Amino acid sequence: MSNAGGSGEDAEEEFEWQVLEELEAYTTREAERLLERALQPRVPRPRPVVHRRAVTDRDHVAAHQRLYDDYFAEQPRHDVAGRPDHSAIQKCTAAIRQLAYGGAADMWKDYIHIGETTALQCMKFFCHGVIKIFRDRYLRSLTPEDCQDLMRCTGRSMGSRGC
């Protein structure tokens, strides 16, 4: 019986020995393969071809300012105190923005750098100019032709508005 137990232990030891030999052989082969791979010269992979446009840095803002200064800028005027006055563009912008957006006169002071009183004066002056220029065409009594055009467009009569 002891023989049977002994032979079982021998078989077990033999099995462990075979496993260790195979494991050592496998790890040796794998280590050699990895070492061989690491020692091979690396061939750089070609980068994919990407066609990019060349970017030329152009200072668009400075170009605009130069163009404006060369052709459109007026010589700065000064008020009675000797301070530079607002440009015509600033004044027209203040008036048109007040009319377009219906805000307060000082609503644009941070954008246009113009005060409330000056903005109101600009808007009044602008409105008087528009009335003076377009009065004859647009601020007149309606003619019968105007009434006909309006009735045709709206599909109803104008009642007692002078027609």
Results as ranks from 00 to 15, higher is better:
4 A>R: 14
6 G>T: 08
6 G>E: 07
8 G>F: 12
12 E>N: 10
13 E>S: 10
14 E>A: 13
16 E>P: 00
18 Q>S: 06
19 V>F: 06
22 E>H: 13
22 E>V: 05
22 E>I: 03
23 L>M: 09
23 L>F: 04
24 E>K: 15
26 Y>P: 00
29 R>C: 08
31 A>W: 08
32 E>P: 00
34 L>A: 09
37 R>K: 15
38 A>P: 02
38 A>R: 07
41 P>D: 12
42 R>K: 13
43 V>M: 08
44 P>I: 04
44 P>T: 04
45 R>T: 07
46 P>E: 13
54 A>S: 12
57 D>S: 12
59 D>Q: 08
64 H>R: 11
64 H>V: 07
64 H>K: 12
65 Q>Y: 09
65 Q>N: 09
67 L>A: 10
68 Y>H: 13
69 D>G: 02
74 E>I: 08
77 R>Y: 10
78 H>T: 14
79 D>S: 10
79 D>F: 15
80 V>Q: 06
81 A>S: 14
81 A>T: 15
84 P>T: 11
89 I>R: 15
91 K>P: 00
92 C>I: 04
92 C>W: 03
95 A>P: 01
95 A>N: 00
97 R>A: 04
99 L>A: 12
103 G>F: 05
103 G>C: 07
104 A>W: 06
104 A>I: 01
105 A>S: 12
106 D>T: 05
107 M>Q: 11
112 I>D: 00
113 H>C: 07
114 I>K: 01
114 I>L: 11
115 G>P: 00
117 T>Q: 05
119 A>H: 00
119 A>V: 01
124 K>R: 09
126 F>Y: 13
126 F>R: 02
127 C>N: 09
127 C>E: 13
127 C>Y: 03
130 V>H: 03
131 I>F: 15
132 K>V: 02
136 D>S: 10
136 D>N: 11
136 D>T: 05
138 Y>G: 00
140 R>V: 01
143 T>P: 01
143 T>F: 13
145 E>N: 12
146 D>G: 01
150 L>R: 00
150 L>H: 02
151 M>R: 13
155 G>V: 03
158 M>R: 10
161 R>P: 01
